[in-house]
Design a protein around this nucleic acid. Structure first.
Length: 804
DNA sequence: GGAGCCAAAGTTTTT
DNA sequence: CTTTGGCTCC
């Protein structure tokens, strides 16, 4: 056993060997936090703690999966409860939700559906929402919930009409949710907190049941999460939290650094372990990060060190405009790839807002560099996916009005706005769920015979599909056939149909996978359909990130937390973007922006490049870019500056002299006082009109030859049409498609004619899915396609994602 | 009753 | 520039 902990350093070992009592692990970036957590769990199990008594909570499924993977590698599969806060809460609520008025079949509404409920609440109150956008109201309520406020305790601030409106709307909204047996994301945690606060016996019982609790990223927990964790660790305070106050980046979501800073006060006799040795980054990277973060006033100073050499300086580049920035970075990546010392997955491009990704996607695509934009929720936001899931939700919970409303229109069945409103009104008058009104449509008095028939048909369908079914996938299949959903999706003849159908098939595959997993693990304590729905509702952006894939990653700073990359590009470091203009006037929020950059820098293993731009195209117009104050702050002996020849950087060109601090341009005093004020500006006698910038000559598109290859191959396939061709698809196979050109298969899921191939096309950044049986994909000989612009370094065994 | 078009508005970060 | 919402027309 002692061998288990041998590979750890002293501090890590102290933390991992800790068994009883509260533990606070202050873990700097790259200090082996995940190793400590997994080794500690392994150690606990080894000394006889029942695995079922251990709960490890993280913020993303990805982090949880990675922990599971590493734990299994250490000591084999264990029935440890390991997942996200929300998943844990959902599971708990399915068991004990009665006490807050929920059945075990409650629905989890995504933000869109929650907004629709909020709209209904406003309608019920007779409130006009023309002057307060619904998202804003939802935001106010969400934030208040995270602060553990209730409609009673929430007091709108003076001169904030939106908050006053939200306060009035909130109780009605909760009422509607309750009637629908539904919760929003925030409620999952709020209900659990309430449950634990109001039911001492249950609290004690769960405290006993979950005797060892571990919380990752504790600096980002908010009041509700704190309340939940607190309530479960009173009698058995074997609570271990890990975190780094310098990486707290979710203050806007109600997270409070207080939780970690005052942990020792909350839990007396806490063992504190500081992990300070960094095993990830070079000395220059760590030094730059440290220099930057030391500008934060609200902070416990911390020592970070590495035994690694200084490495390359952290590079600061000032580009002319966004296009130049993207093209320069693309070129640098290309030449690094050609040299063969790096593969695409070694690179990440980090930006403050998602809107900034576009320029980089375009540039990378043009250069033929495979890349992935980390924005995973999109799959579950797709229309067809939401339609299917709405059906499932309705079958599980017929009171879920949002689900019923959506199912009613998918496919359209002749029940229009008029009829639906009449049904809703009737349901309201009779205090019954909407589904009941549909069931008794003959009593409702619908306008037409047609509408009444449609309602009856819908109910028949609902009842038929409500019959018990072997597995989620089987239910899905039945649903797709009987509801006409599949035909509806498939009937048009534009190319999107195929995409949409493939997405649905992908969902079926996921369900099949899910069924197999549940059978294997034999978890009978949960309803499979509910569990499946939970798993689709609670996915996050980073969950979709595939670390093993041979692609350059593009993501926000927030999404990068916990990850590491050999080469990091941080882009658009301009005042107004990072720090964001809405955070510049508030000291605390400015500090959070600074921590965001700290997180960005410390993702880097070997190289970190930061850049800003002198002119930024943004929302149609152009703005002058002023280098971020953070660039000034991080600049020092570990950094180099390029591109400061003209304009904003007026000082002499920075020399290699490490102490040439005088050469640091005076970024604090830019020629343009308010760079991000709206509208075009004249500056230094320059007029920034769009016409002023000559269109950049784009290199000829490389797709030309690909197209002809493709049509020939497609024609051959259509004429010969050998089934063998379809079967020949394997992961890694080059293929061509009539619409999208050449691409590479990244994976096959399922089997038989409905198997789905996922493909990355050379012309597009996104992954697309195709049903193999449709034979839209034609295998292409790798050697003949000649479209590979660069020789990629050979893929070795892909390492797992590296979480701290 | 439904679909398609046009206009307007709004853009931080996310479980 | 994208998305969303409202309107009109079929």
């Amino acid at each position: 056993m002692e061998r288990l902990l041998e590979s750890l350093n002293d501090a890590q070992r102290r933390a991992a060997a800790h068994v009883e009592g509260p533990l606070l692990v202050l873990a700097g970036p790259g200090s082996g936090k995940t190793r400590v957590v997994t080794h500690r769990i392994a150690h606990l199990v080894h000394v006889g703690v029942p695995p079922q008594a251990i709960v490890a909570l993280s913020f993303t499924n990805k982090a949880a999966d990675e922990m599971r993977r590493r734990l299994t590698a250490l000591i084999g599969p264990q029935p440890v409860e390991l997942g996200t806060f929300h998943r844990f809460a959902a599971r708990l609520l399915r068991r004990h939700g009665r006490m807050v008025g929920l059945t075990s079949d409650f629905s989890i509404l995504d933000p869109d559906d929650a907004a629709a409920v909020l709209k209904r609440a406003a309608r019920r109150l007779g409130l006009s929402l023309t002057h307060t956008p619904i998202d804003r109201l939802a935001g106010v309520i969400s934030r208040a919930k995270n602060d553990l406020l209730t409609p009673e305790t929430f007091s709108p601030r003076w001169g904030r009409p939106a908050e006053e409106t939200a306060r009035r709307l909130w109780p009605v909204y909760q009422q509607l949710l309750l009637e629908a047996d539904a919760v929003d994301f925030d409620d999952l945690l709020v209900h659990v907190a309430t449950l634990l606060a109001d039911n001492p016996d249950l609290r004690a019982q769960l405290d006993r049941r979950h005797r060892w609790i571990l919380v990752d990223e504790y600096q980002d927990t908010n009041a509700v999460q704190y309340a939940v964790v607190r309530a479960l660790s009173i009698d058995h305070p074997n609570l271990a939290v890990t975190g780094d106050p310098d990486q707290a980046i979710y203050g806007w979501r109600g997270a409070s650094i207080r939780n970690i800073l005052e942990f020792e006060r909350d839990y007396p006799a806490t063992a504190v372990v500081a992990l300070e040795e960094n095993y990830r980054s070079t000395g220059n990277i760590l030094g730059t990060a440290d220099r930057l973060i030391s500008h934060n006033v609200h902070r416990k100073p911390k020592r970070l060190f590495t035994q690694a050499g200084p490495g390359a300086p952290v590079r600061i580049v000032i580009d002319d405009d966004g296009q130049a920035e993207a093209e320069r970075i693309t070129q640098e990546i290309t030449s690094a790839l050609i040299k063969g010392q790096h593969s695409p997955r070694d690179f990440v491009i980090l930006f403050r807002t998602n809107a900034l990704s576009r320029t980089f996607e375009i540039a990378l695509r043009r250069a033929g560099i495979p890349h992935q934009l980390v924005r995973g929720v999109e799959f579950f936001k797709r229309r067809e996916i939401r339609d299917v899931l709405a059906w499932l939700r309705m079958l599980r919970n017929p009171r879920d009005e949002e689900a019923v409303l959506r199912a009613l229109q998918a496919p359209p069945r002749g029940l229009g706005k008029q009829s639906v409103e009449r049904l809703q009104a009737w349901a309201g008058d009779h205090q019954v769920p909407l589904i009941e009104a549909l069931r008794r449509a003959d009593q409702v008095g619908l306008a037409s015979r047609k509408a009444a028939n449609a309602a009856a048909g819908f109910i028949r369908l609902h009842d038929e599909l409500s019959a018990p079914c072997e597995g989620v996938a089987a239910l899905l299949e039945l649903l797709l056939e009987r509801s006409g959903l599949r035909d509806w999706i498939d009937d048009g003849d534009d190319g999107d149909d195929e995409d949409r159908l493939a997405n649905v098939e992908e969902l079926v595959t996921a369900a099949r996978q899910f069924d197999a997993d549940t059978t294997a693990t034999g978890r009978d304590d949960e309803d499979p359909l509910s569990a499946f729905l939970d798993s689709t509702a609670l996915v996050s952006d980073t969950d979709a990130w595939d670390p093993a894939s041979e692609r350059v990653s593009l993501m926000t700073f927030h999404a990068a937390k916990g990850l590491e990359f050999p080469i990091v590009y941080m882009v658009a470091l301009e005042d107004g973007i990072l720090p964001h203009e809405r955070s510049m006037d508030d000291r605390d929020r400015l500090e959070e922006e600074r921590r965001l950059v700290f997180v960005g820098i410390t993702r880097g293993i070997a190289e970190v490049h930061a850049s800003c731009v002198r002119v930024r195209d943004y929302r149609g117009g152009r703005r002058l870019g002023v280098p971020s104050v953070f660039l000034t702050e991080m600049h020092g002996s570990e950094t180099s500056v390029e591109g400061a020849t003209v304009g904003l950087f007026t000082g002499p060109r920075p020399s290699a002299d490490p102490d040439a601090d005088q050469s640091v341009p005076d970024i604090d005093d830019p020629p343009i006082p308010r760079p991000f004020a709206s509208g075009r500006r004249r500056a230094d006698g320059l007029t920034f009109e769009p016409e002023d910038s000559p269109a950049v000559e784009h290199p000829p598109r490389r797709r030309q030859p690909a197209v002809s290859v493709e049509t020939a191959a497609a024609l051959a396939a259509r004429l010969g049409n050998s089934p063998a061709a379809a079967a020949a698809l394997v992961a890694g196979q080059r293929v061509s498609h009539a619409g999208y050109g050449l691409g590479r298969v990244t994976g096959i899921s399922g089997a038989g004619p409905r198997a789905v191939a996922t493909v990355i096309f050379d012309s597009q950044p996104t992954q697309r899915s195709f049903i193999i049986g449709h034979r839209a994909l034609v295998p292409v000989n790798d050697a003949t396609d000649g479209s590979s612009p660069v020789t990629l370094a050979s893929a070795e065994d892909p390492p797992g994602p590296d979480l701290e």
